[in-house]
């Protein structure tokens, strides 16, 4: 059967189609991750009206504006406390922070560690493309050692964050890492995060052909995705300190998986009042 040319997609039901196409570059990993999030919303059984999507600033932070849910495009780095407040005022809502590595771990790192420590009931999806894409490819807090960026023209000299290790250490009840190629596993992970009470974290390694691929001689998005295809291994039981990403060492794989899935009481500012008299 030949293809049929159409004008709409079934997943459009979760998007603000009057805003499509989105602003992301050809082959950007944000699109597949958005799709996985949208699919998870559909499969979550939670009505769209009860989902909220919150972001800071950056390429990824534009995602909530495309989602047909309550959406909040806040200031740089401040999405997590914003989302925390919505989740506490409207506990019935499924609140997801969808932002980038620079936003969540550069300027917003303090909010991340404290929200995870509190175990507030929000999901954090982090597109990790190793750089500040919106401003033109500067070094981010996850930029691998030696990798180049416009503000690291001789190669990065700062050790990057190992995000799953960080999230787990701060107390997240669900921690996963996938890539924008592992869309089915990613969708399942987002769905699992939505089902869980407490602070969940999903890192998504994502191609950024302009900001990261090009200066690091990886090439176009498709080549970066092939890199993930070739170097990624799935190991749910991985030892988290070993999850560092080093482009230079070809023998070291990028480890994917659902690393942490534990149960802990979610943050409730009124918990002590409820426990009175017990």
């Amino acid at each position: 059967m030949p293809e049929i040319l159409v004008e709409a997609h079934p997943i459009d039901a979760v998007f603000r189609t009057d805003r499509l196409p989105h602003i992301f570059c050809p082959g950007c990993g944000i699109g597949p991750t958005m799709h996985a999030y949208a699919q998870a919303i559909l499969e979550s059984g939670i009505p769209k009206d009860q989902h909220a999507c919150v972001s800071g600033i950056g390429c990824t932070a534009r995602v909530p504006g495309y989602m047909d849910v309550d959406s909040y495009h806040t200031t740089h780095g401040r999405s997590i406390p914003f989302a925390l407040a919505i989740a506490l005022v409207k506990p019935e809502m499924e609140v997801t922070v969808f932002s980038g590595d620079g936003d969540l771990f550069g300027i917003g790192g303090n909010h991340f560690i404290h929200a995870a420590r509190r175990n507030v009931d929000i999901n954090v999806i982090c597109i990790n493309n190793f750089n500040y894409g919106m401003t033109g490819g500067q070094a981010g807090p996850t930029l691998p050692l030696g990798a180049k960026a416009t503000t690291a023209p001789y190669g990065n000299t700062e050790p990057p964050f190992n995000l799953p290790y960080l999230a787990a250490a701060c107390g997240a009840v669900f921690v996963a890492r996938w890539t924008a190629l592992h869309v089915r596993q990613l969708k399942d992970a987002i769905l699992r995060a939505m089902q869980k009470k407490g602070f969940t974290f999903i890192e998504v390694l994502s191609p950024c052909p302009v900001g990261f691929g090009s200066p690091n001689d990886i090439g176009d998005a498709i080549e970066e995705v092939w890199l993930y295809r070739e170097r990624c291994v799935v190991n749910h039981d991985a030892y988290l300190p070993d999850l560092e990403i080093d482009l230079r060492r070809k023998d070291v794989p990028f480890v994917m998986g659902n690393f942490v899935d534990i149960d802990k009481a979610p943050f409730d500012p009124l918990a002590m009042m409820k426990n009175k008299g017990e």
């Binding site: 406390p81 989302a83 407040a85």
Partner: peptide, 29 residues
């Protein structure tokens, strides 16, 4: 506040406090 079922939060800093205020406000609080 907790005695009347309202939410008291000691945030990590004032950046977070002010962001939380905006989020809470737009959630109806």
């Amino acid at each position: 506040m907790p005695a009347v079922g309202a939410i008291f939060l000691q945030m990590e800093d004032e950046l977070a406090s002010m962001s939380a205020l905006v989020g809470a406000s737009l959630a109806g609080a």
